[in-house]
């Protein structure tokens, strides 16, 4: 069975838009929330796919950026809802409820952290890179737990979803649509990036570092920039995720989340445009349906993952399009 990848991609996007539209018609707001969750997780995994899929570096610490995005939203919205000042030394702010501002802050801080972490971690690769990114992830996790000003272990609740000009974000479908549009824009950027000279260089540095160096390219710099872009996208997803739940907690920094993002990509198809999207949809669907039967639904997720790793190296997309193209 061989289906055009374009066709698969289009079908996935139409389906992802169709399900909440249908839910809107039959007035099932919870389904819309589930779809929004899938879209946001997909966005986070698209970010990871830049460095993991194209760059071949398995970051086991991407929850860092997800968490930073979440806390960017949490902290800004917390100060806005309590009318308290956030004193940053050079200047102070009273927080904000504006999503675009929150997104910029989330992406800015994620990108900056990715730059610093990347400088230290990208000297390694393979298992060492996995371990050192995991270590950084744990540092952030424990920092968030022991940060009492913003809820510590209990996290922060934000009572009202933040604003986006022209939308009522509390209406589930409107918030879904916003997230969906962002996902589409980011997917478009990802596709352009992957085909660009930068993407080609990143991709070949994964396959043969010596080859990239011998033609005069600097793998370290290329990977660092990819890591920064990757972190910024996942950070944006973190901010949206926090807004979806109106809640931020240290679990956003947890290694389980980093692992889930990796699993999403492997299930969908490593380095494939829609891999993370398919993975996220399956993940949320399984979580919902199997989670209804048993607490231990992760067992089934594990079985699926096992089947994919053993029999379909290209993930679901590889299975459908008949092209493997899997690595890692």
């Amino acid at each position: 069975m061989r289906i055009e990848e374009r066709f698969v991609n289009a079908t996935v996007l139409v389906g992802l838009l169709g399900v909440p539209l249908w839910a809107l018609m039959i007035e099932e707001p919870f389904t819309i929330t589930l779809a929004t969750r899938a879209v946001i997780l997909a966005l986070a995994a698209v970010g990871l796919n830049v460095i993991l899929g194209v760059g071949g570096l398995v970051s086991f610490g991407h929850a860092i950026f997800f968490g930073i995005g979440g806390y960017a939203m949490g902290i800004l919205a917390f100060h806005a809802q309590t009318y308290s000042e956030l004193d940053l030394g050079l200047f102070s702010t009273s927080g904000t409820n504006s999503m675009p501002v929150i997104w910029l802050v989330a992406m800015g801080f994620s990108a900056f952290s990715a730059f610093l972490i990347g400088l230290l971690t990208l000297r390694t690769s393979g298992v060492y890179f996995i371990m050192i990114t995991l270590a950084f992830g744990q540092m952030f996790y424990y920092f968030a737990i022991s940060w009492p000003s913003y809820g510590g272990e209990d996290g922060l609740s934000i009572y009202v979803r933040n604003d986006f000009p022209g939308l009522n974000t509390l209406v589930p479908f409107q918030f879904f649509a916003l997230c969906f549009v962002i996902l589409c824009v980011v997917l478009f950027i990802y596709a352009r990036l992957q085909a660009s000279p930068f993407g080609l260089a990143l991709n070949s540095a994964r396959q043969s570092r010596a080859r990239a160096e011998t033609v005069g390219l600097d793998p370290m710099r290329i990977r660092l920039l990819a890591f920064v872009i990757s972190g910024a996208i996942t950070g944006l997803a973190g901010a949206l995720f926090a807004d979806l739940n109106r809640f931020v907690s240290p679990t956003m920094f947890s290694w389980q989340l980093s692992g889930e993002l990796i699993v999403l990509i492997i299930i969908g198809g490593v380095g494939r445009l829609m891999g993370p999207v398919i993975g996220a949809c399956l993940f949320v669907a399984l979580e919902h349906f199997l989670g209804g039967f048993t607490e231990f639904w992760h067992v089934f997720l594990g079985l699926i993952l096992l089947a994919i790793v053993l029999f379909a190296r290209g993930g679901v997309i590889g299975l459908l399009t008949g092209k493997e193209g899997a690595h890692v």
């Binding site: 352009r192 660009s196 000279p197 930068f198 260089a201 396959q207 043969s208 080859r211 033609v215 005069g216």
Partner: peptide, 29 residues
């Protein structure tokens, strides 16, 4: 060589290196 890539992509990589710039992000290589 970048074994997963096409022959052309491998050579384009060299051309990019010669031109000294992988820092182009929008136009397809």
């Amino acid at each position: 060589l970048a074994m997963e890539d096409s022959v052309l992509e491998n050579v384009v990589l060299g051309a990019m290196g010669a031109k000294g710039s992988p820092w182009q992000f929008w136009r397809a290589a």
